[in-house]
Design a protein around this nucleic acid. Structure first.
Lengths: 198, 198
DNA sequence: TCCTTTCCGATGCGCTTGTATCGAAACCTA
DNA sequence: TAGGTTTCGATACAAGCGCATCGGAAAGGA
């Protein structure tokens, strides 16, 4: 059993390379050769880690989700009150939005996948699942905040969660295209949260 | 001056073909050969009408805007009270959203261009201009509705217009991905309009 | 009628793509 | 140390791409 290498870390390295390529040039810029170059490996290595390009792209989609999740967790941990449900909700929302260069790159990749998901059933199903998880998280936090009295009573957590997902998508597009600035987006976000508070 | 043909109508025919290709398979499916086939012309004709593929894509972007505008105008004309500002606003919003198969196709193409615009400055500028026009129209209608007493006084038309643009983008994405249904999207839209009424 | 001018359809070219292939190198076991 | 197994790097290949080329067809003026 010779020449054993850490496949998983190499897969992540390649995924990170593809992520960068998509962030800079869209899905069309994601070619196996460029990915191999950027990851510092040969094409043969890429082909050994991923049987087809489609599998690679699905892995990159998961990699994107992991990146966003990690960013959000970091934000929450750095907040003054990491255990507070409203803090968690606010930091999650702010962490998803493209408010700095890193999150802009993530959002560009997200948008590229969203466009592809609209014409690719398999990717669409994957994305639908991701959205459902996000909405469930939002609903969980909203319900907890309402029960603890931090949010108004009588809110429908699922409806509010869906609204928040819709808002983040809209704001992300507007931030990327440049019609919203990070400052103006924060105003919208804060206003939305204020409207929920008791 | 022989062999004179109607260039403009041929350009629209080709644009319509590319539009269909993008709606079905994303930007990657938009190739000159497929476009020529679908439009029922030869590649030579396509090359005569558009010097490069980039010019063709920019034309398709304008074609998309024209399609949406025409749909919205049709909706307004068919409404019971075409002259009412609130009616115009409501029909414009509903016309933009992917609520039926035709508008879903338009929204898929819009999303494909939005993703490309995030990594292509020229297309980004074009899209920014389109968004500004839309926001200006919304602001105009909101201001008129507020002055005529149909909407609450004290609304900032520009802020409301930006919010409406953001909402339509978010709803469009959620409708395309399948987390919102046409019915649930209409509920959100109606609620947003109700919140503006006096 | 013929000629000039415009147009178009077909074909070719250079390039890039994803994937397949394969000899060589690397490593663990015996 | 020898052997066998796994991995990798380079290369080959077919397909598809945008774009360039060009001979002939079409149409109005002389």
């Amino acid at each position: 059993m010779p020449r054993v290498v850490d496949h998983e870390s190499r897969r992540r390295r390649i995924a990170a390379a593809v992520f960068g390529l998509i962030a800079e040039g869209g899905l069309e810029a994601a070619t196996l050769r460029e990915a191999a170059d950027r990851a510092g490996v040969s094409m043969g290595a890429v082909q050994r880690c991923f049987a087809t390009k489609e599998q690679l792209m699905l892995f990159v989609h998961d990699y994107l989700n992991a990146q966003v999740t990690a960013r959000v967790q970091t934000r929450i941990d750095a907040a003054p009150d990491p255990g507070d449900t409203v803090t968690m909700l606010a930091e999650t929302l702010a962490g998803i939005l493209p408010l700095d260069e890193d999150s802009r790159a993530e959002s560009r990749v997200w948008l590229a996948f969203a466009a592809q998901a609209a014409v690719d059933p398999a990717l669409g199903e994957l994305q639908r699942r991701s959205y459902r998880e996000l909405a469930a998280l939002f609903a969980l936090l909203v319900r907890a905040a309402a029960e603890s009295g931090r949010f108004r009573a009588g809110l429908d957590p699922d409806v509010v969660a869906a609204d928040l997902v819709t808002m983040t998508d809209g704001l992300s597009v507007q931030l990327l295209v440049g019609l919203h600035t990070p400052d103006s987006a924060r105003v919208v976000l804060d206003a939305r949260l204020d409207a929920l508070r008791a």
